[in-house]
Computed example of a mutant assay.
Amino acid sequence: MDDLPSANDAPPKEAAWRQKLRRLYVGESLAARRFQWSAAAIDIVIISFFILAPVLQEEPWFLWFDYAVAVLLTADLAARAAAARDLRHWVRQPAVWVDFVVLATLLAPLWLANLGFLRILRLWTLSQKDVFWRPLRNSRHRHWEDVGRAGINLVTCLFLITGFVFTAFARPGSGIEGYIDALYFTVATVTTTGFGDITLPGAAGKLTSIVAMIVGISLFVRLAQALFKPFKVLYPCPRCALQRHEPDAVHCRACGHILAIPDPGE
């Protein structure tokens, strides 16, 4: 009985291909970086399709492209699940939940048409990939990672609200006749400009405007903080584990421990 393999023991060949997938998705070799950048480029094309979907959905090829994206996303999710060291931990990640929601809207575009605007959340999951931020972390421009993340969060919010406004309120005579009108209203509301030439009707419209203004102000403030706050390097203090320090710091400002912050330019 002791010689029987347990359920958790994977055959050697299976373990080998899973390790290869893991190296491709999270490795830092030349082959891994090429794979990650290729996957990111495909993601950018897909996200562009999601943004333009309200304008392109009447095209005869739209559903074919929609299902092709669903196949690509299914393959990507399956490969990432196979590469995960702990499947339960992987499934609990918010980025994975977003991808499952996006996949559902792709597989049932007619049934879940009203939730199609959620696809733009794929832009946020793309920003979680280290492939974009790794070059910054290894340079003198590490502080631009915070700026980039804040900017992507703001753009994601803009298109998410635009998609919701277009889906929920666009109709003849409403003032929002097309996607550009919805985007115009969103930008005017999020920036609190409030021209007033386009307004959403009813209590639902007022609540949507309030949420857009609150979220927009919060994201603009976060972007401004990332742009103008004093630059600090990320280096954990060996004694107290404080992460952020002045670039030329010699002692930790929290505990006084002597620091040896490496210079990325050397």
Rank of each mutant, 00 (worst) to 15 (best):
I210T: 12
S174L: 10
V155H: 08
L154A: 11
A182F: 06
I214T: 10
V190W: 00
T186H: 05
R171G: 10
V147K: 07
S218H: 07
A170F: 04
H141C: 07
R171C: 04
P201M: 12
R142S: 12
P172N: 05
T156C: 13
R171Q: 14
H141Q: 13
F185R: 02
A150S: 15
G205I: 08
G194D: 11
V211Q: 03
G205C: 08
L200K: 09
W144V: 03
W144K: 09
G196W: 02
V211Y: 06
I176L: 09
M213H: 03
A188L: 10
D197S: 06
I180M: 12
F169R: 11
A170Y: 03
Y179K: 11
V155Q: 09
L219A: 04
A170C: 12
G173P: 07
I176Q: 02
I161H: 02
I176G: 01
G151W: 12
L158F: 13
L183T: 02
T193G: 01
C157K: 02
E145V: 11
A188D: 11
V155R: 07
R149S: 04
L200E: 06
T162V: 06
L207W: 14
F159H: 02
A204W: 10
V187I: 15
T189P: 00
G178W: 01
I180L: 14
F164E: 07
F159E: 00
V190K: 01
T191K: 06
T162H: 01
L160T: 11
V190D: 00
E145F: 00
F169K: 10
V155Y: 08
A203S: 13
L200G: 07
D181L: 06
R149H: 08
T186C: 06
L207E: 10
V215E: 04
G163S: 09
C157Q: 11
F159S: 02
A188V: 03
E177D: 15
T156L: 04
T192A: 14
A150Y: 03
L183Q: 00
V155I: 15
I180Y: 11
G178V: 05
T189G: 02
K206F: 13
H143I: 03
F169Y: 13
I210K: 03
G196M: 09
T208H: 01
M213G: 09
A170T: 10
